[in-house]
């Protein structure tokens, strides 16, 4: 069975599933209970599940992420919501020093089965402190799983996978994708963690993207098809566990690689993909790997400035053209 849902509704459906099917889950964050979440992700959940299962916290990201860890270590399966990914920075100690390390540092004796749900990326007029795409920080941290769903169906499937995972998972959604609509397989079995996906097959060049840049890559591919360039698009989906095999297999077919993300260039996860490709796909590559990313500037708020900073389909298309002509 598949339902047509908006991305944000798919998130809501996954959370409903989690609270309904697993009695060890609890959900908390700012304005998530009675208000239903600043973007409506938790609409109706408090009414259905009550304050025992879903409740509001003070504006204390460090406090409640640490609470999520302690609760996870002692038997609950918390899902904690960070309203904007930018706010995770005030709680980096709990994420990096605590949540990510306890399983390893206890030789596996403690587990931290928790989910940190957040939404990221720019939106028109949003300032530098509400526009970060921090996925590389999390992917850099051993011990964390990192999910970036690009479609309503993945918003549903990957969040459910995150909930059942015994590892801590950062699920970073894209606020700009919330209104997008698509089919969601609400009766599908819960998927295993990980796995990239070829979302458009093509022969000439591979574009690896995640989150909002997947649709930008698909749009670019449609434009380029008219110019006779056949683009294969890989939705990376999970930065950890990383499915590089799918990327390498695609590059083996196309011989060219472009990596696209919204986060700024330097130290972005695209650098990791490019480095792996250099190490593992050298013989297959017929052109240098290209990276599409925001330039290294804090995100400006004015749409006129965002227009030249935020990578879009046209930015991807330009990079692909340069790569196929190289």
């Amino acid at each position: 069975m598949s339902e047509s849902l908006r991305y944000i509704q798919a998130v809501n459906a996954a959370l409903t599933w989690a609270l309904d099917s697993r009695t060890d889950t609890v959900y908390f964050g700012e304005d998530v209970a009675l208000p239903g979440g600043p973007f409506g992700a938790t609409k109706g959940l408090h009414k259905r599940f009550g304050s025992d299962r879903i409740f509001d916290t003070p504006i204390s990201e460090t406090g409640f992420l640490g609470m999520a860890l302690g609760a996870a270590m002692t038997g609950l399966r918390p899902i904690a919501e960070i309203m904007y990914a930018d706010f995770s920075f005030v709680a980096m100690d709990q994420i990096v020093n605590q949540i990510a390390t306890i399983h390893y540092s206890s030789a596996g004796r403690w587990k931290a089965p928790l989910v940190i749900r957040m939404q990221q990326g720019y939106s028109p007029g949003a300032c530098a402190q509400h526009s970060h795409s921090p996925e590389a920080y999390f992917a850099h941290t051993p011990g964390l799983r990192v999910a970036l769903p690009a479609t309503p169906d993945d918003a549903y499937q990957m969040l459910r996978t995150a909930v059942v995972s015994d590892d801590p998972v950062v699920v970073a959604e894209a606020r700009m994708l919330y209104p997008t609509r698509g089919p969601v397989r609400t009766d599908a079995p819960v998927e295993d963690i990980g796995g990239a996906r070829v979302v458009r097959p093509g022969a000439d060049v591979t574009v690896v993207a995640w989150s909002r840049m997947v649709s930008a890559a698909l749009d670019a591919a449609a434009t380029l098809a008219e110019e006779g360039v056949d683009v294969e698009v890989v939705d990376l989906r999970w930065l950890n566990p990383l499915d590089f095999d799918t990327v390498a297999a695609s590059v083996a077919r196309t011989g060219r690689l472009v990596v696209a993300h919204e986060a700024n260039l330097t130290g972005g996860f695209g650098a990791e993909i490019a480095a792996r490709a250099a190490a593992e796909c050298f013989a297959d590559l017929r052109a240098p790997v290209a990276r599409v990313a925001a330039p290294d500037v804090p995100m400006p708020a004015a749409p006129a400035l965002q227009a030249v900073v935020v990578p879009e389909a046209a930015t991807v298309a330009d990079a692909v053209r340069r790569t196929v002509r190289a």
């Binding site: 609890v26 609470m67 038997g75 605590q98």
Partner: peptide
Amino acid sequence: VGENSIVGAGVPIATGAALT
């Protein structure tokens, strides 16, 4: 639940044990 070598960081975690 353990020691912690980040000053103060154990208190949020202990709060989580209390939540459970």
